[in-house]
């Protein structure tokens, strides 16, 4: 979830592409015609028209997430997917959702760029009787009837699993740990920090310092360089994502120490480069943040259209890997 909220500039021509996609969507809609707002007519024709608004394409994690959705919601699986990329902008997302409402799709799904400011557009969807499914990130709204279900990882749980493993492996050895945090204020950063801190409370692992690396390799490396100069007794690094962990590896190697041995590393995400480093023994443990939300989304969308009750909160199945598990899993990794 290496989202960078600071990013402001949306690529001009990429925005044009998005616009083109939307136009294409509207023209494709013509033959579908008959749908008059409910799920029934579409259910009758067996094809579910689903409008999806993605955050953007800011990280390897997000790219895998997009691919999973596009590969699952195919015509063969009974879906007509209308996909748009919001380029990290809420206004683009609201625009896309409005256009889906006008097109009277059967289901709207999206990963909210930010947590707030969705009530108005979700009310519109509700008035048009189009069910909404949230993926990956939640919205902060008083009224939880505005959406059917929220599918995504539990970030607190991810931090907790990372901490639990550290305690299980290293408790009793007086480890000193440092933390490379994600972008300050981002939900994954707050929750992973919380989960990890809760898990190591009561053990003799001590968190001696914590600093933001903004979810990027360059800053992860710079912060780790600073830590290595400041303390000469770091035993453990907890990085809120793989990329910062990979940056930390570079810094540790440059300081003449062996990552994974002299200094243990635990990260969250499980993108390919991270898994490779884990298999190579440079990272010790990765808690996966599963981007493959496509199958869950397909299942929930079908249930919603069929009028079945669905769970308000669906926590995706995240795995966790140690070095041996990574070697076994690496050949089959999809992302």
């Amino acid at each position: 979830m290496s989202t960078n909220f600071r990013r402001a500039g949306a690529a001009l021509f990429a925005a044009t592409l998005t616009a083109a996609t939307l136009v294409a969507c509207s023209s494709e809609q013509a033959p579908q015609g008959g749908g008059d707002g409910g799920g029934e007519s579409a259910a009758a024709s067996d094809t579910i028209v689903l409008g999806f608004s993605q955050v953007g394409a800011e990280s390897g994690w997000r790219a895998a997430n997009t691919k999973s959705i596009q590969d699952t919601l195919t015509t063969e699986n009974g879906f007509d997917l209308k996909f748009s990329d919001a380029q990290q902008k809420q206004e683009n997302q609201i625009q896309a959702i409005r256009s889906y409402i006008q097109q009277q799709v059967d289901v709207i799904a999206f990963s909210p760029v930010v947590e707030t400011g969705w009530d108005a557009v979700l009310e519109e969807a509700k008035a048009a009787e189009i069910p909404v499914i949230l993926t990956d990130r939640a919205v902060d709204s008083e009224d939880d009837t505005l959406y059917e279900s929220f599918i995504g990882s539990d970030f607190v749980e991810e931090g907790k699993r990372a901490g639990d493993w550290a305690v299980e492996q290293y408790d009793g050895e007086g480890y000193k740990a440092v933390e490379l945090q994600g972008t300050t204020g981002a939900a994954p950063m707050i929750d992973r920090q919380q989960g990890f801190a809760d898990a190591i409370a009561g053990s003799d692992i001590e968190m001696i310092d914590s600093q933001t690396g903004n979810f990027t390799r360059t800053e992860g490396k710079q912060v780790m360089e600073g830590f290595l100069q400041k303390y000469d007794d770091i035993d453990l690094v907890f990085a809120h994502n793989d990329d910062m962990g990979l940056g930390a590896i570079e810094a540790i190697e440059a300081a003449g120490k062996v990552p994974g041995k002299d200094i243990k590393i635990i990260t969250v995400d499980g993108v390919k480069d991270g898994m490779q480093a884990l298999a190579d023994g440079k990272i010790n443990y990765i808690v996966e943040c599963n981007p493959l939300l496509g199958p869950d989304l397909a299942e929930i969308a079908k249930k919603v259209v069929a009028g079945e009750e669905v769970e308000k909160r669906i926590v995706t199945q995240d795995e966790a890997f140690d070095q041996e598990a990574a070697k076994a899993a690496l050949p089959d990794r999809q992302y």
């Binding site: 690529a11 001009l12 021509f13 790219a63 990329d243 480069d273």
Partner: peptide, 21 residues
Amino acid sequence: LILMTAGRGVAMLITEGQITT
């Protein structure tokens, strides 16, 4: 400003949206 806004898009196209390692 033209290149500032378009440039990252060009870079994204080159790396196909991935972090190339």
